[in-house]
């Protein structure tokens, strides 16, 4: 126990790199798999009879990039909105809205993303926008809930001392509340992003091209190889991101 503080300082660059080994391994595997156009013979084993066994309508790297972009934009918006709203309702001025915000976030989670897509398309048209909206709504709850929990778990006496020492409200937020709540907030973002990586595949149904494309096309045409290709890449992406978050969290 006593040695942990010292150990943390004595970390060599090599050891630091080793801590990131798992996420990096997943990332490498993901990038390798995106080159699976070369593995035609393998997928031929799954679907011996169809004409094309590797999804070629667009490259896997392009689909992966699109997928990351959609999830990234939606998650970024969810973090800004979610953390922002949670901070706002824990300030003295916003406290009245606390129940409202936590309820709204819960309702966002109860809407199935498919239903949100169905509702959003008539308003926003086909393409990337409706799926971003759906992911944003779906991913908001874990972030809002965890930010509220993280800020709420800070001991009252720490607050009292911070104010009593003469910190301004902004200093209390930046130097005390956010750093102390960070692990819990990060855990919420992790849940949100990981769920959304999987959910984003639905975007393929409304014309947002991403890793959901091979899956949807595979379902429509009865081509299992396509489905496997999309699913494997989505799975690897989720694992890479999730283990990256785990690494970040364990540092704190």
């Amino acid at each position: 126990m006593k040695s942990t503080a010292l150990d943390a300082r004595r970390i060599t660059p090599l050891a630091r790199a080793r801590r990131w080994l798992t996420p990096l391994a997943w990332l490498a595997l993901l990038l390798l798999s995106a080159g699976m156009g070369q593995l035609e013979w393998l997928f031929r084993l799954i679907e011996p009879d169809v004409r094309a066994v590797v999804y070629r309508r667009s490259g896997f790297f392009a689909l992966l990039g699109q997928h990351i972009l959609v999830v990234g934009v939606a998650s970024l918006l969810a973090v800004v909105l979610g953390v922002g709203a949670a901070i706002a309702v824990t300030r003295p001025a916003g406290r009245d809205f606390l129940p409202l915000v936590s309820q709204l976030a819960s309702i966002g989670q109860t809407f199935p993303p498919v239903a949100v897509l169905a509702l959003a398309v008539p308003v926003l048209g086909f393409g990337t926008l409706p799926i971003i909206v759906a992911l944003l709504l779906y991913g908001l709850l874990p972030i809002v809930r965890n930010t509220l929990a993280g800020i709420g778990s800070i001991p009252a006496e720490v607050h009292e001392a911070a104010r009593g020492m003469g910190m301004t409200a902004g200093q209390v937020l930046r130097q005390v509340e956010l750093p102390l709540a960070a692990p819990v907030i990060l855990a919420g973002i992790r849940t949100s992003v990981t769920i959304n990586i999987a959910t984003a595949a639905l975007g393929a149904t409304v014309g947002a091209s991403n890793l959901g494309d091979p899956i949807i096309t595979g379902i429509v045409n009865g081509n299992t190889a396509y489905i496997v290709q999309g699913a494997v890449l989505i799975g690897l992406l989720a694992l890479a991101v999730d283990s990256g978050f785990e690494r970040l969290l364990r540092r704190g």
Binding site: P155, E157, V158, H159, E160, A161, A162, R163, G164, M165, G166, M167, T168, V176, P179, L180
Partner: peptide, 20 residues
């Protein structure tokens, strides 16, 4: 009030030290 508090030392029972 912020200026005032910085001029006055304050000690509480549970210390209120910042754990991080």
């Amino acid at each position: 009030e912020v200026t005032l508090r910085r001029r006055i030392g304050y000690v509480i029972q549970s210390t209120g030290l910042f754990p991080h």
